[in-house]
């Protein structure tokens, strides 16, 4: 076993996990408070990456591009919520799945129309392009480290907002009983729009940070959307804490599993079949985890207390 590699993969796992958390936080809030299945969340992540690529091109600075992207995706989220999603809250899940599936098709085609079918590259400033030797002997890319840092800061901020502020109190109240807070005189429509915009901005942040490492391309939202859905289902829909723990768990399992499963399989299988089976099994692992969790706890690990679910 290569310990340096393991450490590096654990860092990578945290990085993926935190990206997933940024997406899952918004999605689980929308799910939990509005009881709304939003498949188009991945599209907002994609738009974050594309916006950032464009703004970075305009301003010649990744940092400025990123700062411009966040409000842009926030506004996009608010507009989408007001035009298309608002009327869907009272509908059943099937209608929501269908309509947001339609949104995915729209966003993918619109992106292809505006930015063309070829993927984009987001250039990084020099100080993020270097490697940092946090573990002696194992240089680690500064940008990935920055993702981990930003991820933790945003997670902390989010925790603060949800647990300590009035807005957070309303969000939590909404997650456990939305009719009741409506009856108490809270403008629930405005709250929904705000939460959706916040979720969109977080998705955009995840997108702009994933852009430079993965590639900025059409359909990048779908694959990560499925991972995100797995995260929030494992964590318990509506629970930020659950989303955080499940996201880190999935990130670690996926990354570490991918790099060490071949070695583990080698112990029980002949080398050739282990090499072909490993990628498939590691892609399946998170789904296995999810079915295991749901088979034992059908409401996820941390179902938020409350009624109506």
């Amino acid at each position: 076993m290569n310990w340096l590699l393991l450490l590096e993969q654990i860092l990578n796992g945290f990085q993926l996990g935190l990206l997933l958390f940024l997406l899952a936080a918004g999605l689980t809030l929308v799910f939990g408070i509005m009881d709304m299945v939003n498949l188009a969340h991945g599209s907002l992540y994609m738009m974050g990456a594309y916006f950032c690529a464009t703004f970075t091109g305009w301003t010649d600075s990744f940092i400025l591009g990123a700062i411009l992207t966040l409000p842009a995706v926030f506004i996009l989220g608010v507009v989408v919520e007001m035009i298309a999603l608002r009327t869907l809250y009272s509908r059943d899940h099937l209608d929501q799945v269908m309509a947001t599936f339609g949104l995915i098709l729209f966003f993918n085609e619109a992106t292809r129309l505006i930015w063309g079918p070829i993927g984009l590259v987001i250039p990084l400033p020099d100080f993020l392009n270097e490697t940092v030797e946090i573990i002696p002997g194992a240089p680690y890319p500064a940008f990935r480290l920055a993702i981990i840092l930003v991820g933790f800061i945003v997670a902390g901020l989010l925790y603060f907002i949800v647990a300590r502020t009035k807005l957070g109190m309303l969000i939590r109240a909404g997650a456990s009983n939305r009719e009741m807070i409506g009856a108490l005189g809270i403008n629930i429509r405005l709250l929904f729009t705000l939460v959706f915009g916040l979720g969109a901005a977080l998705a955009g942040l995840a997108g702009l940070m994933a852009g430079p490492i993965l590639s900025v391309e059409i359909g990048m939202g779908e694959s990560i959307l499925i991972l995100t859905l797995v995260v929030i289902v494992i964590g318990g829909i509506g629970s930020i804490k659950g989303a955080f723990i499940a996201a880190i768990l999935i990130g670690l399992i996926d990354t570490v599993g991918r790099s060490f499963l071949p070695e583990i399989l080698n112990l029980v299988l002949p080398e050739a079949s282990a090499a072909t089976a490993a990628p498939a099994i590691s892609s399946m692992m998170i789904y296995l985890l999810m079915t295991l969790v749901l088979a034992i706890k059908p409401q996820g690990l941390f179902p938020p207390r409350g009624v109506g679910r």
């Binding site: 299945v37 789904y287 088979a295």
Partner: peptide, 17 residues
């Protein structure tokens, strides 16, 4: 064994497997 959104998600997870 699951209901609602969880059912949607778990059937999708199985098909992805």
């Amino acid at each position: 064994r699951t209901r609602g959104v969880y059912f949607i998600m778990i059937t999708m997870a199985f098909s992805q497997m």
